[in-house]
Amino acid sequence: MAISRFLIGGVASALLLTGGLFLWAGYTQVAEKELLPDPPPALAAIPVAGPNAPTRGPAPPALPAAKEASREERRFNRFDRDRNDRISRVELMSSRTAAFRKLDKDGNNLLTFEEWAAATGARFAGADGDRSGDLTRAEFATTAPKRAAKAKCSC
C-alpha cells in the first residue's frame, strides 16, 4: 500500500513538472514576441538626381586630409575597443593571444588566476599612475614593449 502511494506520488510529481515546463516555455515565447518590435515598413526609394541635374549653391569645400596616426596612437586604438580614450583591463587582454601563451606557464591552454595575476596585475598597476582602474593614452604609452637594437651593419 505504501509503495503504491509512493509510485502514484512520483508519477503525479513528474506530470506536474512536465506541465510546468510546457507553461514556462509558452510564457517565454509570448514574452519574446511582446519584446521584439515589428520591423519598420520598407522605405520608399529615395530619388536620385540624374547626371545633368542642376546643382544648388557652391560646391562643398574639400575635406581636410586626416593626420597620420603615430605608432603609439595606432597601438592604443587597437586596444581601445569602445573608443572612449581609455583602455580597461578587459580591452587590454581581449586580443593578446601571444601574451596569453606567455602567461600560461603550465601550457594547458587554461589560465589560472594565479598565473594571470602574477604577471598582469603588477604590470597594469605599474602603468596606472593615477590609480583610476584604467589606462589613459599617456599611461598606456609606458607599456610599449622595448624595441630590439638593430644591427649596425648588414654582415
Rank of each mutant, 00 (worst) to 15 (best):
M1F: 11
M1Y: 03
A2M: 06
A2C: 13
A2D: 11
I3C: 11
I3F: 05
I3Q: 10
I3D: 04
R5P: 01
R5S: 05
F6E: 14
I8A: 14
G10W: 00
V11Y: 08
A14L: 12
G19W: 01
G20D: 10
L21C: 08
F22A: 07
L23F: 09
L23C: 08
L23N: 10
A25P: 08
A25L: 13
G26R: 06
G26C: 03
Y27H: 05
Q29F: 06
V30S: 04
A31W: 10
E32L: 11
E32P: 04
K33Y: 11
E34Y: 04
E34I: 03
E34G: 05
L35W: 14
L35A: 15
D38A: 14
P39I: 13
A42I: 08
L43H: 08
I46N: 15
P47M: 04
P47E: 09
V48E: 15
A49Q: 11
G50C: 06
G50N: 10
P51V: 00
T55N: 13
G57L: 13
G57P: 10
P58C: 13
L63A: 12
P64F: 11
A65Q: 15
A65K: 14
A66T: 14
A66Q: 13
K67H: 08
E68D: 15
S70N: 07
R71S: 10
R71D: 07
E72D: 10
E72T: 08
R74Q: 08
R75G: 01
R75T: 02
R75S: 01
F76V: 00
N77E: 03
F79V: 07
R81L: 12
R81W: 12
D82L: 00
R83H: 14
R83Y: 07
N84I: 04
D85F: 06
R86C: 04
S88R: 03
E91H: 07
M93E: 04
S95R: 05
S95V: 03
S95Q: 00
R96D: 02
T97D: 07
A98S: 09
A98V: 09
A98G: 11
A98D: 12
A99G: 06
F100Y: 03
R101F: 14
D104T: 12
D104E: 11
K105G: 14
D106C: 09
G107N: 15
N109Q: 13
N109M: 10
L111R: 02
T112Y: 12
T112M: 09
E115D: 12
W116F: 09
W116G: 02
W116R: 03
A117H: 15
A117Y: 15
A118S: 14
A119W: 02
A119F: 04
A119H: 00
G121V: 08
G121A: 09
G121D: 08
A122Q: 13
A122P: 11
R123I: 10
F124G: 01
F124R: 04
G126I: 05
G126D: 11
A127D: 01
D130Q: 02
D130I: 01
R131P: 05
S132A: 03
S132D: 04
L135M: 03
T136M: 01
A138V: 01
E139C: 03
F140M: 02
A141L: 03
A141F: 03
A141R: 03
T142V: 14
T142R: 01
T143S: 06
A144F: 02
K146G: 12
K150L: 05
K150M: 06
K152I: 09
K152G: 14
K152Q: 12
C153E: 04
S154A: 12
C155A: 14
